[in-house]
Amino acid sequence: MTQSPACPTGSDAFLAVCGHTHLFPGARCRLRGLPDPHAFARAPRPVELELRFSDDVVAEARLRTEDRTGAVLAVPAYTTGAGTSIGSRTWLVREFARTGDEVELTIGGHAGGGSAP
């Protein structure tokens, strides 16, 4: 699901800028454009995201907070800019931290199943 490196596609999704070409435990993504970053960091809610990776590939994702394991990030399969296929994954979110007008997510391990709805 490669999108333009410009801005999200105009959907109701928030942009999340990631520091690498893929996610892994300890990876971080910064959510931009949230109406109240302070409140979101304290009490995250489900939102649609567009993850922009360091190679400018954009993948749709969903942050879910209703899972009994805690907050999870569901990411469908995508292909990196170098052509590597990344399978769909559901990741635990280890931490939410406000950094100015953004909220930084820190990825934990895989959350159960491995597929991302």
Rank of each mutant, 00 (worst) to 15 (best):
A39E: 11
F40D: 06
A41F: 05
A41I: 14
A41Q: 07
A41W: 02
R42F: 01
R42W: 00
A43M: 06
P44M: 12
P44R: 09
R45F: 00
P46W: 01
P46S: 11
E48I: 06
E48Q: 12
R52A: 02
R52V: 07
F53Y: 10
F53S: 08
S54N: 02
S54Y: 06
D55N: 07
D55S: 10
D55V: 14
D56S: 15
D56E: 15
V57Q: 07
V57C: 08
V58F: 02
V58T: 12
V58L: 13
A59L: 08
A59G: 10
E60V: 13
R62T: 14
R62H: 06
R62G: 02
L63K: 03
L63N: 06
R64D: 02
R64W: 05
T65C: 13
T65Q: 06
E66G: 09
E66Q: 10
E66V: 09
E66K: 13
D67A: 14
R68L: 11
T69K: 04
T69G: 01
G70Q: 07
G70E: 03
A71C: 14
A71F: 08
L73P: 01
A74W: 01
A74D: 07
P76C: 03
P76Y: 01
Y78W: 12
T80N: 07
T80I: 12
G81N: 09
G81M: 15
G81R: 15
A82G: 03
G83M: 12
G83E: 09
T84E: 13
T84H: 10
I86S: 04
I86A: 00
I86C: 11
G87Q: 10
S88V: 05
S88F: 07
R89H: 10
T90M: 05
T90Q: 08
W91K: 08
W91P: 05
L92P: 00
L92V: 09
L92T: 09
L92Q: 11
V93T: 04
V93K: 04
R94W: 05
R94P: 03
F96P: 05
A97E: 15
A97G: 02
A97R: 15
R98T: 11
